[in-house]
C-alpha cells in the first residue's frame, strides 16, 4: 500500500546545500508496522513528514494506494490526510482551546461525519478517557493527553498511522500503556503503522525495521 522510491530531501542553508534524506526506498503492506530508528538528526522525523505529506520532497516518489502524493497540491495532500492518515506526536499537538472530546471530533468533522460526537465518545471510551471528555488539554496529564491524541488519530479510521516518538514525553510506565493502546487499536483497525523511535524495545514490537544515519538507510529488512 506504500511504496517509496528514491526519495530525497535537500535544503539550502547559508553553507550551501544540505542533504537530509538521500535515496530512501521502502515498500509496506496494509497492516504492517514499521519502526524507523536512528540517532538524532538522522532524518527520521523528516521522512515521517514526507510520508505523511506534511512536507514536500526534493525528488523521488511516495505512492500510497497508487496515488503519488508528491504530485498532489497542498490541498490535495490535506484531503488525502483527512481520508487516509492519522498522527500521534511526541508533543501531542492537541488544540489547547478545545476539550478532549472536541479535539477528537475535529478530524471527523473535517471528514464530514454526521455522527462525529458519537464516534468520538466511543474512541474516548476505548482509550479510557470517557470521564474526562470535557477537560481541556492543560487539565490532563501527559499520558492522558497522548491518549486523546491517539483517539484523535484513529477517529478518521486511517489506513496509515504515523507516530513520532509517541512515548518521548512520557514516563516508562505510561509510555508502555500508550504503546499497548497504539498496537491494540492498530491491530483492531488493521492500520499500517509507521513509528519513529529511539527505543529498541519499541522497535522490536514492529513487524519491520529501518535504520537511518545521516539521511541514508543503513539497515532495512529484506522487503524493500
Amino acid at each position: 500500500m506504500l511504496t517509496v522510491s528514491q526519495l530525497c530531501k535537500t535544503v539550502t542553508t547559508t553553507n550551501g546545500k544540505l542533504t537530509i534524506l538521500d535515496d530512501i526506498n521502502l515498500n509496506l503492506k496494509q497492516g504492517e508496522s514499521l519502526a524507523v530508528s536512528g540517532p538524532s538528526g538522522s532524518g527520521k522525523s523528516t521522512l515521517l513528514s514526507l510520508l505523511a505529506g506534511l512536507d514536500t520532497a526534493t525528488s523521488g516518489s511516495i505512492l500510497i494506494h497508487n496515488t503519488d502524493i508528491t504530485h498532489l497540491s497542498e490541498d490535495g495532500r490535506a484531503e488525502f490526510r483527512a481520508r487516509h492518515v492519522g498522527f500521534v506526536f511526541q508533543s501531542f499537538h492537541l488544540l489547547p482551546t478545545l476539550t478532549a472530546l472536541e479535539n477528537v471530533v475535529l478530524p471527523l468533522e473535517l471528514k464530514g461525519s454526521t455522527d462525529a460526537i458519537e464516534q468520538a465518545n466511543k474512541l474516548l471510551f476505548e482509550v479510557g478517557l470517557s470521564a474526562r471528555s470535557d477537560h481541556y488539554p492543560n487539565q490532563l496529564s501527559g499520558g492522558e493527553q497522548q491518549r486523546v491524541a491517539i483517539a484523535r488519530s484513529f477517529a478518521s479510521n486511517p489506513d496509515l498511522l504515523f507516530a513520532d516518538e509517541p512515548t518521548g514525553n512520557l514516563d516508562t510506565k505510561t509510555g508502555k500503556q500508550i504503546i499497548d493502546l497504539l498496537f491494540d487499536l492498530n491491530s483492531k483497525q488493521n492500520t499500517t503503522l509507521i513509528l519513529v523511535t529511539h527505543d529498541n524495545n519499541l522497535a522490536d514490537r514492529c513487524s519491520r525495521n529501518m535504520q537511518l544515519d545521516s539521511g541514508r538507510c543503513i539497515n532495512q529488512d529484506s522487503y524493500a
Binding site: 505523511a52 506534511l54 497542498e74 490541498d75 490535506a78 484531503e79 488525502f80 490526510r81 483527512a82 481520508r83 492518515v85 498522527f87 499537538h93 492537541l94 488544540l95 482551546t97 475535529l106 478530524p107 473535517l110 471528514k111 484523535r152 478518521s156
Partner: peptide
C-alpha cells in the same frame, strides 16, 4: 499553530 494542526488532520486551505 491551530492551522498547522488542522492541516495535519486534513483540513483544506478553504476550511
Amino acid at each position: 499553530y491551530e492551522a498547522g494542526v488542522l492541516r495535519t488532520l486534513g483540513a483544506r486551505n478553504r476550511t
